[in-house]
């Protein structure tokens, strides 16, 4: 009897140890030294493309920099900014507005690079064929949108909201001038195309790059939805890095990182894929001062406080 009891006691001990191991195993990795770069992006792509893009990019960066690179897909614009602020993300692909918001909240952050197309980025206003809106030649022509149903893309988008709203304001058009007293927010560039095409909205505005891509893919029916105006150029997306990367990952790391991006070239097959998925020919150097105009506009429209 006593023997049996001791035996069961032993079994209990073993079970407790196993349970303890299972419970603590998730935390076991905490102790591993931090020699890694965490990258993220505010994604406006489909998941399949994102997976290809960022797994390739993480591999390539890790190869170039000889460091572990982890991609964390933060899908919410505000969350990406906040996570950058708290230092949880080292390198983030931000839009114009979100990048400025992030830099204000994390002073000293370093603008690393942008795509060749980002220094002269455009938004494009589109209209439904039934709306009777004719293509316009200059900014003041935007007045034809008065009394029409109009939609932006997502609230935090530079090309789908901030800059278009800036030009609308310049043309002395208030958001309350649209039909229904408000402008819609379709949530994404593709949704803007679909909703204007269907006629739910008479007109909308989106990222020119997306528009060109969809045209090339044959997914836009120009008889039903056509461009009416292209905005003047402005700067948009860019890579933004934490101010303290040199300290954590070795002196000159930020410089090395910038150079890596600048060196990406279509002759390298993997880099070619990356550039193609980014819709760019190459990455170019970007500077914080390029985004001052965006900051001003953001402040004027209340998107930067």
């Amino acid at each position: 009897m006593l023997y049996r009891r001791q035996n069961t006691y032993k079994i209990y001990q073993i079970i407790i140890v196993i349970l303890g191991l299972i419970l603590t195993s998730p935390f076991a990795k905490i102790c591993v030294a931090k020699e890694k770069l965490i990258i993220s992006a505010i994604p406006d792509q489909n998941p399949e493309k994102l997976n290809r893009l960022y797994s390739t990019l993480a591999d390539e960066l890790s190869n170039n920099l000889q460091i572990k690179v982890i991609y964390k897909p933060v899908i919410n614009y505000q969350a990406a900014v906040s996570a950058f602020r708290t230092g949880s993300l080292d390198l983030v692909w931000f839009g114009g507005l979100t990048g400025v918001q992030a830099r204000i909240q994390r002073p000293g952050s370093i603008v690393i690079a942008q795509r060749d197309i980002d220094s002269k980025f455009h938004s494009i206003f589109i209209a439904n064929h039934k709306s009777g809106i004719k293509p316009i030649s200059n900014l003041n022509g935007l007045k034809v949108l008065k009394g029409k149903r109009f939609t932006f893309g997502s609230e935090s988008s530079t090309s789908g909201r901030l800059m278009p709203q800036h030009y609308l304001t310049k043309a002395k058009l208030k958001l309350s001038d649209f039909k229904g007293g408000v402008a819609g927010f379709s949530g994404s560039h593709d949704a803007t195309i679909a909703l204007v095409k269907s006629g739910s909205y008479d007109s909308g505005v989106l990222n020119e790059q997306v528009w060109e891509e969809r045209l090339a893919q044959g997914r836009v029916d120009l008889k039903k939805v056509y461009p009416i105006w292209r905005t003047p150029p402005y700067v948009d997306y860019h890579w933004l890095a934490q101010p303290n990367l040199d300290k954590h990952l070795g002196k000159g790391f930020t410089r090395k990182l910038t150079n890596t991006f600048l060196s990406y070239d279509k002759s390298n097959p993997r880099q070619k894929i990356i550039l193609e998925l980014f819709g760019a020919r190459s990455f170019v150097k970007a500077y914080a001062y390029q985004y001052e105009a965006i900051e001003d506009i953001g402040r004027k429209l209340g998107k930067i406080r």
Binding site: K49, K72, N76
Partner: peptide, 21 residues
Amino acid sequence: LGIFGLGGIGTELQLSLMSLQ
């Protein structure tokens, strides 16, 4: 979970919705 960069099927859904894929 998408907010925290953890992915999840909801995130997949949201992303493909954004691009109407």
